[in-house]
Structure formats: structure tokens, C-alpha cells
Amino acid sequence: MTRYLVRRAALLVGTLFLASIVLFVLLRLLPGDPANALLSVGATPDQVAAARHQIGTDRPLPAQFGHWLSQLATLHFGTSFVSSLPVGPEIVSRLAVTVPLTLAAFVLAVVVAVPVGFVAAHRSHTWYGGLVGVVSQLGIAVPAFWLGLLLVWLFALRLRVLPAGGFPPAGWSAFGDALTALVLPVVTVAVVMAASLIRYVRSATLDVLGSDHIRTARALGSSFVGAMWRHGVRNAAVPVVSVLGIELATTFLGAVVIESVFALPGLGSLLVRGIAQHDYPVIQGVLFVSTFAVLVVGFLADVAQRLIDPRLRGAVARR
């Protein structure tokens, strides 16, 4: 296992490096000039040239890339073209919203989806089993922002129990306000996430329930719960864990729509603004951090799968 961990970690670092090259090069292929974002109507060609020189986009690409890497090596993300402020602290302050939002929604979604998905599979022929199928299908079809608007209308505008949006200027030092600010966004993200998770849990459970080894275990005298616990959950969990990893990674940046609906200063809105303004250091910084997060989640999901399923460990040993 240790050897596997070391190899997997090395793969993570290598992937991160390749990803940084790809995202650096792809960004430079975008049409448009970041100098434009700095200037307004009336700018002279001299002003444009000065702006390019100031942000360094007049230098050759390899030099720009080398500069960026050397900054990254010292954990600096560079300076925004547009605001001339360091990108690192900005990303950190956005993470203070995005990470709690993503994790809380994720936990809520798992807590709801796993039992519901299991029951839906186990009781798939009952009316409520069918209902879960329909409701989860609906949950997938509903756009997240629409659900967000609906929740705002109900809880903020009609019932007036929760804020319509925004995040307290004092951040997490105003703990109560920060917490209530995240309730509706968390629920919105969790509902959409849970809807698809339920379907994965349900189908994974159905596969397991119909499998020969459960039938055999039951025939050998195991109780249903015992058979499921010993032989079912582990098998059903493997595909679900990999889906969980993907869902978590998607939400990390995918929450941008929710951030906009709820006026939250999260990572996604920083990325969208960065793209609109061709603010390369901001885009690179956000994508680098999120790529890192996605790779770490993938790493954890892989490790979790190997812990759950000994057969996967064997596969590595044979290689």
C-alpha cells in the first residue's frame, strides 16, 4: 500500500505539472488582448503598448511560463493584470466561501442520497421506491440557478427567515451571519448533487442485490443486513465513490452560477471575471488551485476504493 501511495502521489505531481503547461498554453490561444481590459475608450497605441509592457505580455511565452513557475515554486500566484493586486490572497479569501459551500453541500448530499438510494433499490417495486426515481430524475432536470431563485423567493422574500444572498463583509469572524448566508446555497447545491447521487447509489445497489454472491450469502444463512454489510456495501461503494469524487470536483468550480444567484464571493465568480477580463494570472491561479483540488480528490477517491475493495490492491501488485 505504501508503495502504491508513493507512486500515486508522484503521478499527482506529474499530472499537475502537465496540467499547468496545458492551461498556460491554452489561455494564450484565446483571442483578444489582456491590455484591453486595463484601458478604456480613448486609449492611444502608446498606452496599449505601455500596458502590455507593464503586465509582461510583450515577453516571449517560454519566459512568461518560466516566470510563472518560479513564482509558483515559492507559492506566489503573481499579480492580477487588472487590479495589480496579488492573486494568492484573493484566492484564499474566495476559498473561505467555496470550500465550506462545496464540502457542506457534499456531506448533505451524501447523507441524503445514500440511504434514499439504497431504499429506492431495495424497495424498487413499492410506490415510494418509484417515487424516489421520479423525484431524483426531476432533481437532475431542474437547473440549479432556478432552484436557487425559488428558494430565495420562498425563504428570503416570503418567509423572511434567511438572507437572499451576500456574504458578511467580516467573513467568518461574523460566524452566525456567514453560516446563515450559506444555508440556501448549500441546500441548492446539495439537492442537485443528491439527485444524481441517488440514481448512482440506486443502480449500484440494484446490481449488488441481484448478484450471485448476495444470494449465496443469504442461502448460507446470513441475515439480509449481514449479507449486505459484509458483501453488498463494499461492492456497491466502489462505483459510488468514484462518482462522488467527480461530483465534488465539479461543484468546486461549478458553483459559479449559485455564487451569482446568491451574490457569494466564491472561486467560480473570480474565474468568470478573470476570463472576461483576460486576467491571465487570476485564471491561471484559480485553475491551478482547482486542478490541484480535483487531483487530490481523485487521489483520495482512488485510495478509498483500494481500501474498500482488496481486488483493486491485487491488480496493482500484479502489475
Binding site: L157, R160, A164, G165, G166, P169, V261, F262, A263, R273
Partner: peptide
């Protein structure tokens, strides 16, 4: 004075409606 910034016009209107 506190300026609150929004990217979405409806979110801004909701903030006004809820006295934020």
C-alpha cells in the same frame, strides 16, 4: 456607507426587497 457588489441584477433586487 457599505457598497455591496452583485453580478446578478435579480440578486441585487432581492437584497433590496429583504432590506440587505
Amino acid at each position: 456607507v457599505v457598497f455591496h457588489y452583485f453580478t446578478d441584477g435579480s440578486a441585487l433586487d432581492n437584497a433590496l426587497l429583504t432590506n440587505a
